[in-house]
């Protein structure tokens, strides 16, 4: 890991702890800090509703942000390396749109509304399955297109087009859906880390952990893939198996986050760049763990910003992530000649 790794790792862990605290202590309902502390340590609060808010709303939301941030960033990093394209991520390549389409199909064919949070366990598994199939289909198409389209920018544009197709299919589905369904889809599309209930949290965490585990186990082949597939193959990497595993991991992570939190943009795209710029390396040994930590920190920060208005309401997540993410990407594009990993 080295000196730099410990400094950044330590700093990020400290900021994550601080941001977790901010997420637990701040919210639309004003709860005194000592009460929050008492509730978290298992004590009694002045009002029962406060206990409910902290444990049933703030805690799962905070954990969801933590896990989603890591999940989105890890899938962004894997996609950028696999497609040899620094501007790839699951929202740009249309993978989250694919997941959304899967969710929409399950929901509207099932006749319900598009929020996984409102579902029973079997419903919730169906929704995730739908999202996974949607994401995997788009990933498969992109993988196929990448063998035809050698130009990196053209592949991104093809991905954006696939995203548009998925979105218009969703609009078509919405056309036939009930007004209530359309409303809940719109709300879901704004993004929200509050979509996971305390009961769903263990299952949600387990699925994200499985995806992240695959990402961490693929660090060695990801490094070989920096050289491109033919070099990686010569280094003894089974390209097909590694690609399939990466496809499964990004598909799972995108599907789970998208079905619960909506299509969250920019975190997956920007965080790997933030990590690379900080560390000054493309070596996944260090880049992968720091990307996971930075993703968690940034998602928690976004969530804090969302709940800042307090009693006045909650800012939609997808209104915040581009403001943090897009400038990073513009910075990277403008300075690409100076940034080592682009050359």
């Amino acid at each position: 890991m080295g000196h730099k790794g410990f400094i950044y790792g330590g700093t990020l862990c400290a900021s994550i702890l601080a941001l977790i605290a901010a997420n637990l202590f701040l919210g639309s309902v004003d709860i005194p800090a000592q009460d929050v502390a008492r509730i978290l340590t298992g004590g009694e609060a002045e009002r029962e509703t406060w206990r409910y808010i902290v444990w049933e709303s703030r805690f799962p939301q905070c954990m969801t942000a933590l896990l989603c941030g890591a999940a989105l960033s890890a899938s962004g990093l894997m996609l950028q390396t696999v497609f040899n394209n620094p501007l790839a991520d699951s929202s740009i390549l249309g993978i989250s749109s694919g997941a959304s389409l899967g969710v929409a199909l399950v929901m509207l064919v099932g006749g319900g509304t598009i929020t996984a949070g409102a579902f029973t366990l079997s419903g919730f598994i169906t929704v995730i399955l739908g999202a996974f199939v949607g994401a995997a289909c788009v990933l498969g198409i992109i993988l196929f297109l990448s063998s035809l389209i050698k130009n990196a920018v053209m592949l991104l544009i093809a991905g954006i087009m696939i995203g548009y197709i998925a979105s218009s299919l969703i609009s078509l589905l919405n056309f036939f859906a009930t007004a209530e369904g359309v409303h809940s889809y719109t709300i879901w599309g704004l993004g929200n880390f509050g979509g996971v209930s305390l009961e769903q949290l263990p299952a949600f965490s387990a699925m994200i952990a499985a995806g992240l585990l695959i990402a961490v186990l693929l660090i060695k082949p990801l490094n070989a893939l920096l050289l491109g597939p033919r070099y990686a193959e010569n280094l003894g990497i089974n390209i097909r198996r590694v690609r399939n595993l990466l496809l499964a991991a990004t598909g799972l992570l995108t599907a789970v986050t998208t079905s619960f939190c909506g299509p969250v943009s920019f975190i997956g795209l920007a965080v790997p760049h933030i990590a690379r710029l900080m560390l000054g390396t493309s070596n996944h040994n260090l880049l992968m763990p720091v990307t996971l930590l930075a993703g968690s920190a940034i998602a928690l920060l976004c969530n804090v910003i969302c709940i800042l208005p307090g009693g006045a309401g909650v800012i939609p997540l997808n209104a915040v992530t581009p403001i943090l993410g897009a400038p990073v990407i513009i910075y990277v594009i403008v300075n690409q000649r100076k940034i080592q990993y682009f050359n």
Binding site: I219, K220, T281
Partner: peptide
């Protein structure tokens, strides 16, 4: 082939050649 190794040090790049000999985490 075009590579995306600009962000690796020369040492790290050469070390990739040890992958056939190193263990699971390289």
């Amino acid at each position: 082939d075009k590579t995306q190794t600009g962000g690796l040090t020369v040492y790290e790049l050469v070390a990739l050649g040890r992958q056939p000999h190193t263990g699971f985490f390289g």
